[in-house]
Simulated assay, not measured.
Amino acid sequence: MSTLSLEDVTVLHVDDEPGFTDLVKNFLERADSALSIQEAANVDDALSILLSEDIDCIVSDYDMPGKDGLDFLELVRDEHPNLPFILFTGRGSEQIASEAISAGVTEYLQKEGGTDQYKVPANRIRNSVQGVRAEAAVHRTEQRYHNLVDTAPIPIVLFNQDGRAVYSNEAAVAFLDADSHAEIEGKSFAGFLHPEDRDTARARFERLMAEGQSMPEREFRVQTFDGECICARVATAHGYYHEEEVAQAMVYR
């Protein structure tokens, strides 16, 4: 799915008991109107559906003939490492739960009596799918950011909360006369500045991280890797990179 909307969630339910799959379909769709349930009677049929359909979440039984739920989970994880997978089984044990967790199961639920039990898997499906879509949205945002910043004509370097560089664009590599991005990343922001400018830069950095607000341009003497000292205006903005708070430094000559 391409958005965070949960108006349409396609769930693949795998169980070898036809009467139970119909029951699960009815109660899950009743518990959450966003859910649309597809059914498969065995792992092979389920794998075929995964090849041809856009599935948001899998709910699978454990005890099935041929390949069981753990076999299915391992096959799914080979091709779909982030697809939510809920093992919904009546044959539970600590060993099965441990193996499922090791194989990367999203949730492990045991079947119980009564119709109220379907509220739990319906809620877990919704939460799991929402989490995956949120991560995908963050990834797309970061990708767009990289596409924009990588090609920006001004040098840009991101510093983490420890004040160390975690990202630099091509313009920054050229401006700082670095051999590569790797030479910049990990270096403290103070190391890019003339010693007499470091206390001022440190105070600006601490204020930016504490208040989460951009700082106006200020002239600094920037030191390149070849030892040149360049007078430049530096603006800093608060932001996030890989879900971590960063200070974005933009250099203008």
Rank of each mutant, 00 (worst) to 15 (best):
S2Q: 11
S2M: 15
T3N: 05
L4K: 11
L4F: 03
S5W: 02
L6E: 14
E7A: 09
E7M: 02
T10D: 14
T10R: 13
L12W: 02
V14K: 00
D16Q: 12
E17H: 13
T21K: 01
T21C: 13
L23I: 15
E29T: 07
E29N: 09
E29K: 08
R30H: 09
R30T: 09
A31H: 06
A31T: 14
D32W: 11
L35F: 06
I37H: 00
N42A: 08
V43G: 03
D44L: 09
D45S: 11
L47G: 08
L50R: 02
P65Y: 04
K67H: 07
G69V: 04
G69A: 06
L70R: 03
E74A: 08
D78K: 14
E79M: 01
H80M: 10
H80S: 08
P81K: 09
N82Y: 11
L83E: 04
F85C: 02
I86S: 00
F88A: 01
G90L: 04
G90H: 05
G92N: 02
S93R: 02
E94G: 04
Q95V: 15
A97M: 15
E99C: 00
A103D: 01
G104Q: 09
G104F: 06
G104D: 08
V105I: 09
T106Q: 05
E107H: 07
E107Y: 13
Y108C: 06
L109E: 04
Q110H: 01
K111W: 02
K111Y: 03
G113Q: 08
T115V: 14
T115I: 12
Q117S: 10
Y118W: 10
Y118A: 04
V120C: 01
R124T: 04
N127T: 10
V129A: 06
V129I: 09
V132A: 12
E135F: 03
E135T: 12
A137M: 12
T141G: 11
Q143H: 07
R144K: 12
R144V: 10
L148M: 10
L148R: 00
L148V: 12
P155C: 05
I156Y: 01
V157A: 14
F159E: 03
Q161P: 03
D162H: 10
G163H: 14
R164I: 05
A165W: 00
V166C: 13
V166K: 01
L176P: 02
D177T: 11
A182I: 08
E185N: 09
H194M: 06
H194E: 13
P195A: 09
D197T: 01
D197M: 02
T200I: 11
T200C: 05
T200W: 03
A203G: 05
R204C: 12
L208K: 05
M209F: 07
M209L: 10
G212L: 06
M215P: 00
E217Q: 15
E217F: 05
E217R: 15
R218P: 00
R218Y: 05
F220K: 00
R221V: 08
R221I: 05
R221H: 13
Q223R: 15
T224F: 04
F225L: 09
G227H: 07
G227T: 14
E228N: 12
A232Y: 02
R233W: 06
R233C: 00
V234K: 02
H238C: 10
H238S: 13
G239Q: 04
Y240F: 13
Y241R: 03
Y241Q: 05
E243C: 03
E244R: 11
E245L: 01
Q248D: 00
